[in-house]
């Protein structure tokens, strides 16, 4: 497998980004249109600025789109190669998993699982060390946030079972 091969070309990513930012612009216009977009006796209405910001975002995105399409000047410039993408996903997918787990199990449990997973399978640490460190982090989280600084963190069903808040 060719690791240096381009997975996504720079040009196509430029196009995709311009389309997304343009889409955000359209959403802003749509949201602003609910409000007064005019300039009355008392100055601009509440939709005046958002409406125009939305239009300008679309115009600037169009410029980016046209430049990306026309120039093709990025030529064969690469956005990510296979190897890079694999590294990014190897790091990014566990983060996604962490977020999803947090929503169901709370931040503590998710943090333990996530930290242990990354340290064991990607860092190559001994399971005992990794799990121990992960638990230590969870204990530190609990001490620092809810106990010392009285900032409650997201908890899940397991904490509820244990009677922790």
């Amino acid at each position: 497998m060719d690791n240096e091969r381009a997975l996504i070309s720079r040009a196509s990513m430029e196009v995709a980004t311009a389309l997304v930012t343009g889409g955000v612009g359209a959403a802003v216009i749509w949201g602003a249109a609910e409000h007064d977009i005019g300039w009355g006796d008392s100055g601009p209405g509440s939709g005046y600025f958002p409406f125009r910001i939305g239009i300008l975002i679309i115009l600037a995105s169009l410029t980016n789109l046209v430049l990306a399409l026309r120039r093709r000047g990025f030529g064969n410039e690469v956005f990510v190669t296979n190897a890079q993408m694999r590294s990014v996903l190897a790091f990014g997918l566990p983060i996604l998993g962490f977020v999803v787990l947090s929503l169901f199990l709370g931040l503590y449990v998710a943090a333990i699982l996530y930290l242990a997973f990354v340290m064991i399978f990607q860092g190559g640490y001994r399971p005992l060390f990794a799990i121990g460190l992960a638990f230590a982090v969870a204990v530190a989280m609990r001490l620092i946030f809810p106990i010392w600084f009285k900032v409650p963190l997201l908890t899940g069903p397991i904490e509820a079972l244990l009677g922790l808040y």
């Binding site: 790091f91 566990p94 983060i95 962490f98 977020v99 947090s102 929503l103 931040l107 943090a111 996530y114 930290l115 990354v118 340290m119 990607q122 860092g123 190559g124 640490y125 460190l133 982090v137 989280m141 946030f145 900032v151 409650p152 963190l153 997201l154």
Partner: peptide, 24 residues
């Protein structure tokens, strides 16, 4: 080592995101 500090930064980042408004 980054294998330890990297994921720790991630955890701290999301704790930070949670404390802003306690919203999922």
């Amino acid at each position: 080592p980054f294998a330890i500090i990297g994921p720790l930064i991630v955890v701290v980042c999301f704790i930070g995101a949670w404390t802003v408004g306690a919203s999922k």
